[in-house]
């Protein structure tokens, strides 16, 4: 089996990519309000530590299957800000050639096999990628992110059971943000501790603070070592909070005090910056901010003038 080693990332790396997700999504929101981006837009601001921490423990060959809330996962796994901006603006240069949009991002080369508009839709597909890795003995991992809503889909339970039986390198990452669309988890879920779910299917699991990117990375690294050693599937349970409403700019019905507490005391960017005041000095953070913003602005500017997907090619390729 091929071993792939991932160098331990620096605090700067973590900060940079969490900020890249935050600012990319803020830009997307701006473009959405301006009607430059159409359709549905599910933002993950506040949750950045989860994708950055998990994806830092993965290699390019590992296959990630995401959700309807996929921008953060995409950026963390691929670092392709240009591809996501162009995709959401419906351009041929987008990562799905302008055919997919916000929920159907795709980048095979970097191991991102898709956002998914169906809650729970990616879970069993990730098992398929894990099965492929086992079948081809290539040392890769199949990863699914899923949220509180998907936890109540039958497919999660079926997939955990089958993954456990097949003993394939399948990693299920629960982004436990306490809410499914707009329904609070207490109202939708009889057992909210996901590690118990893993236990029921004889799957190893770990919980970590989903606002602390280093804690997420440490847990994900343990999971990845377990998976690459062929010890069977793994589940990560990461408590986090999304600051934005379920979709676009709809009304948020959650307790504002609770959200304020998360914003004030559990901001993933502040958590890491507070831990390394010297490494992540205010000067360095400002510099990273300028670099990230310059890249985002350039990506958007380029996408704005990029060509739309060709109608003739669409007709030819899809027989319509």
């Amino acid at each position: 089996m091929k071993k792939s080693s991932v160098a331990s990332p620096s605090a700067e790396y973590f900060y940079r990519w969490m900020l890249a997700i935050r600012h990319s999504e803020q830009k997307l929101k701006e473009l959405y309000i301006d009607h430059k981006i159409k359709g549905a837009l599910h933002l993950s601001i506040g949750q950045e530590a989860v994708p950055v921490g998990v994806c830092a423990a993965l290699s390019d060959g590992d296959k990630v299957f995401s959700t309807h809330r996929s921008h953060g996962h995409y950026i963390a796994k691929t670092h392709d800000i240009e591809g996501i901006m162009a995709e959401l603006l419906g351009r041929a240069t987008g990562c799905s050639n302008g055919y997919g949009g916000s929920m159907h991002l795709y980048n095979y080369e970097k191991g991102f096999l898709g956002g998914n508009g169906i809650v729970g839709g990616g879970i069993s597909l990730a098992l398929g990628a894990a099965f492929s890795a086992f079948y081809q003995n290539n040392g890769q991992i199949g990863v699914t992110f899923f949220g509180d809503g998907a936890a109540n889909q039958g497919i999660l339970h079926e997939t955990l059971n089958l993954a456990s039986l097949l003993k394939v390198p399948f990693l299920a990452v629960c982004e436990n943000n306490g809410v499914a669309a707009t329904t609070p988890v207490e109202k939708s879920t009889s057992e909210t501790d996901r590690t118990k779910l893993a236990k029921a299917y004889k799957i190893s699991s770990l919980s970590a603070d989903g606002s602390d990117v280093e804690a997420v990375y440490a847990a994900a690294s343990k999971a990845v070592a377990h998976l690459r050693a062929g010890k069977g599937p793994f589940l990560l349970n990461l408590r986090t909070c999304r600051w934005e409403p379920h979709c676009g700019i709809i009304k948020d019905t959650r307790d504002q005090k609770m959200l304020d507490d998360w914003r004030t005391n559990h901001d993933p960017l502040n958590v890491i910056a507070g831990r390394y005041p010297e490494l992540l000095s205010s000067e360095l953070r400002a510099e990273i901010g300028r670099e990230v913003d310059a890249r985002i602005e350039a990506a958007v500017a380029e996408a704005m003038t990029a060509p739309a997907p060709e109608l003739a090619e669409y007709k030819r390729n899809f027989g319509v």
Binding site: S124, A126, L127, A129, S132, E158, T159
Partner: peptide, 14 residues
Amino acid sequence: GAFTGLAAGAALTG
């Protein structure tokens, strides 16, 4: 659901 999804994910990965 799970084995059909497995097949789909396997097909996406070669």
